Each structure stands twice: as structure tokens, then as C-alpha cells.
Simulated assay, not measured.
Amino acid sequence: MSNTISCYLQLLESLEKIKFKKIVLLHGEGFGAWCWYKTIAQLEEVGLQPTALDLTGSGIDLTDTNTVTTLAEYSKPLIKYLENLPVDEKVILVGHSSGGACLSYALEHFPEKISKAIFLCATMVSNGQRPFDVFAEELGSAERFMKESQFLIYGNGKDKPPTGFMFEKQLMKALYFNQSPTKDVALAMVSMRSTPLGPIMEELSLTPEKYGTGRRFYVQTLEDRALSPDVQEKLVRENPPEGVFKIKGSDHCPFFSRPQSLHKILIEIVQIP
């Protein structure tokens, strides 16, 4: 039997013994469950049970983005999913980019339902921080962004505070997809939606008794222009997780640019006892 096949069979066997096989994938700003299509296929192939959720006002969820004002509201599909889990079930959560805020929120409110939390080039904030603050180096301070950005959307009229934002396509390509295949970039360009502003401007309240007991892992992307490797390094330093993994040659969307490397890391984290 070839070495590759025997390694694959060994992997299947070791994953078979794992108690919690459910993996919930949370997208970042502008994305939806659709962005995980490669990851879902790869995880299913090795016998795991991935579920990708559309957060409120994202993907094919019909809620108007401009009406989503809080992190609790934005995270509702995840909260519902966790509330409906059987008592003895736990899941592994994976959050991409600003989806990391929903991950932290879930860790604070449902620590007993989450076996591991994986922050994928994500906003892993500390207590009292806003998800937006993480992007401040790239986008400027929140205050300045709210006043001056040309990407803001005023869903309630120009005289009211902005309700969302969306980068224009060329900037999005440069920020997010500098290493991604053109087909995936084309998929993103027709699928991305605006992002509600309220949830990423909200300060998170995270306690040592709840959030602090969670098992957190961070996956860094080393060719990332949306959340630079330096910023990711700083997040890990200020709020140390249990393990840190790095994906070489990956832009801000490893599920497109380095799906195989991402898959390997997810499998490695799943297997950590």
C-alpha cells in the first residue's frame, strides 16, 4: 500500500476516535457561509461534520444589514445553533477575520458548549476592546473612519450615523485576495455584501471565569494585507492562546489561497487532546 494511502487511513482512524466532530465555521466581514466551500469538502472527506453559518445580514440571510446594530444580533445564528446543541455535545468553532468577535462572544456566553476556538487571522480582542480597533492600523482610528471613510453606508439617511460599510472592488481585491485564485476572487466579487457597523464597534465584555477558560488557538496568515502579520502577532502577545500556527503564502483568505495548509492545521488542532 502506498505511503500516502496508509497515512490517510491512519488519519481517518485517529479522527474516528475523536469525541467532538462538529466544526462550526464563521465568516468574516462581507463574507458568508459560501466562502468555506473548499474547507467544508475537505473536512467532510475525513469524516468530520462541518457547518458553515451565515451571520445575521450576511450570505443568503435576508435581514437588511443596516438593521443589525449589536454583536448579539449579528451572532444570533451561532447563538441559536449553540442553544440547540444536545447537553453532552460540544463543538469546535472557527472564526475568520471579524468573525473572531462572534467567537469571543460565544466563548463568553457558552463556554461549556465549545471544546476549542480557532481564530483564523481574526479579531481576537481583549476585554473592553472593539473588533474594529484591531484594524485601526490599516483603516485609521474608529472615530476618523466614522467621520471620513468613503466606504460607509447610511441606511437611515445621511443625517444619521452610518449603519454599515463596504470596500470598493479594487481595494477589496488588494486587501483580501492578493494570493487567491482568480476564480475565488470572482466568486467573492459577486457574493460579498456590506458589513453592519454596530457589531464591530461594540466593546466586548470578556471575563476570566468564562471566556478565560476557553481553549483558544490562533492561525496567522503571513501575506495578509487586511490584518498585517505584525498586528496578528500583537493580538497573540496581548491575549495569548494555547497554540499559534502560521500559514506561509496566505492572504487574508486562507480558505481560498491556501486551503490545503488551512485544512492540515485544522486537523492538527482537532487532534490536540
Rank of each mutant, 00 (worst) to 15 (best):
P241I: 04
P241G: 07
P241M: 04
E242I: 07
E242M: 09
E242V: 10
E242W: 04
V244R: 02
V244M: 01
V244Y: 01
V244I: 12
V244E: 00
F245V: 03
F245S: 06
F245E: 05
F245N: 01
F245Y: 15
K246S: 14
K246T: 11
K246F: 11
K246Q: 14
K246P: 08
I247D: 03
I247M: 07
I247P: 05
I247R: 04
K248Q: 14
K248G: 09
G249F: 12
G249S: 10
G249D: 14
G249E: 10
G249V: 06
S250I: 02
S250Q: 04
S250L: 06
S250T: 04
S250N: 06
D251E: 09
D251N: 03
D251K: 07
D251T: 09
H252E: 09
H252R: 09
H252Q: 11
C253T: 15
C253K: 00
C253M: 14
C253R: 00
P254R: 03
P254D: 01
F255S: 06
F255Y: 14
F256M: 11
F256N: 02
F256C: 03
F256W: 05
S257C: 10
S257V: 01
S257M: 05
S257T: 10
R258S: 12
R258D: 00
R258E: 12
R258G: 04
P259F: 08
P259G: 04
P259E: 03
P259R: 02
P259H: 02
P259T: 00
P259M: 01
Q260F: 11
Q260T: 11
Q260H: 08
Q260Y: 08
Q260C: 00
Q260P: 00
S261L: 07
S261T: 03
S261A: 15
S261P: 02
S261G: 13
L262R: 02
H263T: 11
H263M: 06
K264D: 12
K264C: 07
K264Y: 08
K264L: 13
I265A: 09
I265V: 14
I265W: 00
I265L: 10
L266G: 10
L266H: 08
L266Y: 06
I267Q: 11
I267T: 13
E268S: 14
E268F: 05
E268G: 06
E268W: 03
E268A: 15
E268H: 13
E268I: 05
E268P: 00
E268K: 15
I269E: 05
I269Y: 11
I269S: 10
I269H: 12
I269A: 10
V270Q: 13
V270D: 02
V270R: 08
Q271T: 10
Q271M: 15
Q271E: 12
I272N: 11
I272M: 15
I272W: 12
I272G: 00
I272T: 14
I272R: 15
I272C: 10
I272P: 00
I272L: 15
